[in-house]
Amino acid sequence: MKFPEPLVEGRLIRRYKRFLADVRLPDGTEVTAHCPNTGSMLGCQPESARVWLSRSNNPKRKLQYTWELVETSPGELACVNTARPNAQAREAVQAGTVVELSGYPECRAEVKYGAEKSRIDLLLSGHGAGPDAWVEVKNVTLAEKNQGFFPDAVTERGQKHLRELMAQVKQGDRAVLFFVVNHTGIETVRPADHIDGKYGELLREARDSGVEVIAYRADLCGSDGNPTGLLTLTEPVPVILEV
């Protein structure tokens, strides 16, 4: 997938109230952009970082700009818009890029399920006599020395999703935790035990219970370190669960 329009570059001034970010454009104009990320964005809001915004022409929108990408360090980009990963994962599955999830002709999004009243990101079905696949998608942007970590803050919601996935396995279906690696500097993905130890414990329990855990990297920038305009998932990334 790709951005429908060229992104607007700027410099981050500050992020605040979780959903707002002030950005200085190249002509000196300061704008307030929507920040579509409920997490801590740890490591993704360096002072005066280069950022890229999408622009809406909808006159009814209160904020014209949306924060999409950030340069976390020279030549490394991260996609901070957490509305993107589900679409990235769906496109990659339907294109046959995700070999672990090939052969499913039907794909539905946001299907209600589970005892804890969740919504699954992707429900894949129609694989002959095989079971349906319940796919939970997570965005990975926290990088430390080329290692990616999830989550970037304590997440009770994420813990709930792991319990729901384990329940689906018990019912005879496939359950998959899909990490979308939206940071070009990440080479492996690990649970962030130093941030949310409970999540790490549940993730390993889920793996041992039959939940599949996979990760794929997004194509965000070219050799010059600037955005290509693409968000396409291109290759698998190892997930390391050993402590």
Rank of each mutant, 00 (worst) to 15 (best):
K2F: 02
F3E: 07
F3S: 07
P4A: 01
L7K: 03
V8Y: 08
E9P: 00
I13Q: 03
I13P: 00
A21K: 00
V23F: 06
G28S: 06
T29R: 05
V31Q: 01
V31W: 07
V31T: 03
V31L: 05
T32R: 04
P36H: 04
P36N: 11
N37R: 07
N37C: 12
G39V: 01
G43F: 10
Q45H: 12
E47K: 09
S48P: 01
V51S: 02
R55E: 14
L63K: 07
W67K: 04
V70L: 10
P74Q: 10
E76K: 02
A78V: 06
T82V: 08
A83L: 13
N86C: 09
A87C: 08
Q88E: 15
V93D: 03
Q94Y: 07
T97I: 14
T97K: 07
A109N: 11
E110M: 01
K117E: 12
D132M: 11
W134A: 05
A143F: 00
P151I: 06
T155R: 03
R157Y: 05
K160W: 00
V169M: 04
I186P: 07
V189N: 13
V189D: 14
V189R: 09
A192K: 07
I195F: 07
G197H: 09
G197R: 05
G200H: 03
G200E: 12
E201G: 02
L203E: 15
R207I: 08
S209M: 06
S209G: 00
E212C: 12
I214M: 13
G222W: 13
S223D: 15
S223L: 15
D224N: 15
P227C: 12
E235F: 02
V237T: 15
V239F: 04
I240P: 07
I240R: 11
V243W: 14
